[in-house]
Amino acid sequence: MNPLFWSWSAVTIATVLGGFLLGGFLTGIDRKLTARMQNRVGPPIVQPFFDVIKLWGKERVMVNPMQLLYANTYLFFSVASLVLLILGWDLLMILFISAFASVALVLGGYSVESPYARIASQREIIQIAAAEPVLVLAMVGMFLVTGDFTAAAIPEHPRPLLVDLPLVFVALLIAIGIKLRKSPFDVSTSAHHAHQELVRGIYTEFAGPTLAVLEVGHWFEMIFFLVFLGLFWAPDWRIAGLLLTSTFILELLVDNISARYTWSWLLKVAWVGGMGLAAVNVAWLYL
């Protein structure tokens, strides 16, 4: 056993524990802040943990056994992408792994007979198609700036990425709105409340412990994208933290001031707006 193995193991365990706690608390803060924006008292900050514990204690009811596999796959790849990001691996590979998580979710939605889940799965595919190209472009931009595809290279870069990639950052805000399932981008399912058109979209047929797994998976996904955004001011973690906080509040604010939109509009915004901004930024780096 070499020392590298031990340090990696330590980082992995710390990330899993930290991600779980931070993810739950962030979701709690999200719910509390959302409630305050709506002039409500709102749940306690630790409510998401209560929810997951309660779900975990419920009877395991599954429409078919594959659901559990897909839910666990989703959780595993969400955790893995976060761990690899913290370990500073190759960004493209990390993106690929996080896409695996999304695909597992889509398969989970498709594996049941419910038309709501199926239509939501179709929409989730569109969401993936809308968000992933923006993320790839962002990574290309990062490569162009740092000359390296690994996440570890970014903190070593002398200047914050945001200086070179401001438009990419804006494009990422859209992509992350999609990934966090916030209005107006919550077409396939929504993070906290039952979805109106499709009941609860992909999550419709998940229940009890299986749903708890999905909830936790979503926490990790959220942390993953926030850490990814944090890379834009990587050398100084205090400013990065400030950046993340304001981004988070901005997403909440947008969630609260807009209605859900249709998927065709989502594609338009993500491709024309998001990819356009990112592409302009990347092209500008080339020149």
């Binding site: 209005s183 209605a259 939109y261």
Partner: peptide
């Protein structure tokens, strides 16, 4: 209506 449009905060305001 607000709720069906996914506009949760408006829904809350109306109900207030």
């Amino acid at each position: 209506l607000a709720d069906a449009l996914g506009f949760e905060s408006l829904f809350m305001q109306v109900f207030r």
